[in-house]
């Protein structure tokens, strides 16, 4: 029962990666990320209950921290940057939407093959955990490299972090809550700084296309 709940959450999270690759509106993209984080925030609790009947407090602390930061605060910051930046609200991909979705699906299939041969520190609570973690990681990377705007790159980075988070569930018992919360804090500060940087890129260059940034020169 618990296992099928976990499986459903993981598959839904993997599909939300594809949804993020498919949406053309940035606000919708950010909201999709928030939904994905919400789903993943439920996972530590489920994994905790699958290990023993009464999981420790740190499981709930991690879930609550993830929910507060990645579901509420970070999407709120990103949406605010989107509004205040007065930017063109369409995602501008280097790779077309259909091609990105197919590429994303290919990544998911490949990660199932890849995860089979991976040596793990402990047994995964469900067979889907590692493949979905790897798939989310690489889908995040795909978002990171295939989108032109700085803000979508922030989003890609966050999706990569979601993948790392799923992977971290393998070590749920061993990691102290302090480490996990420290990562969340780093993430928050990172996004905060990136929000400011994005805003300044817009102010300096009147847009936030990052591929124009590699033509830096003095004058």
């Amino acid at each position: 029962m618990l296992r099928s709940v976990m499986d459903s959450i993981l598959i839904l999270a993997a599909l939300l990666n594809l949804a993020m690759l498919a949406t053309s509106r940035m606000a919708a993209c950010i909201r999709t990320f928030a939904v994905q984080s919400l789903l993943l925030a439920l996972l530590p609790v489920a994994v905790g209950f699958s290990h023993d009947a009464a999981p420790g407090v740190h499981v709930f602390a991690i879930a609550a921290g993830t929910m507060g930061l990645k579901v509420l605060l970070i999407p709120w910051i990103l949406l605010r940057v989107l509004r205040s930046g007065e930017i063109h609200r369409e995602v501008e991909p280097f790779i077309g939407f259909t091609a990105s979705v197919l590429l994303g699906a290919l990544i998911i299939v490949a990660s199932f093959a890849f995860a089979d041969g991976m040596p793990l520190p402990s047994r995964a609570p469900t067979d889907l955990l590692v493949p979905v973690a790897v798939a989310t990681l690489f889908n995040g990377l795909l978002i990171l490299v295939s989108r032109a705007k700085a803000i979508t790159q922030v989003l890609g980075y966050l999706v990569v972090e979601n993948g790392v988070f799923v992977f971290g569930l393998l070590l749920l018992d061993q990691t102290p809550a302090l480490v996990e919360l420290g990562i969340l804090l780093d993430l928050f500060v990172g996004v905060f700084i990136m929000g400011i940087v994005v805003y300044h890129i817009r102010r300096e260059f009147d847009h936030m296309d990052t591929h124009l940034l590699d033509a830096l020169r003095e004058s």
Partner: peptide
């Protein structure tokens, strides 16, 4: 529309893998 249909194909492909 091609994307909508590609989405359906992807759903079945993932189901096959599972």
């Amino acid at each position: 529309i091609p994307m909508f249909l590609a989405g359906a194909t992807v759903l079945s492909a993932i189901a096959v893998v599972l």
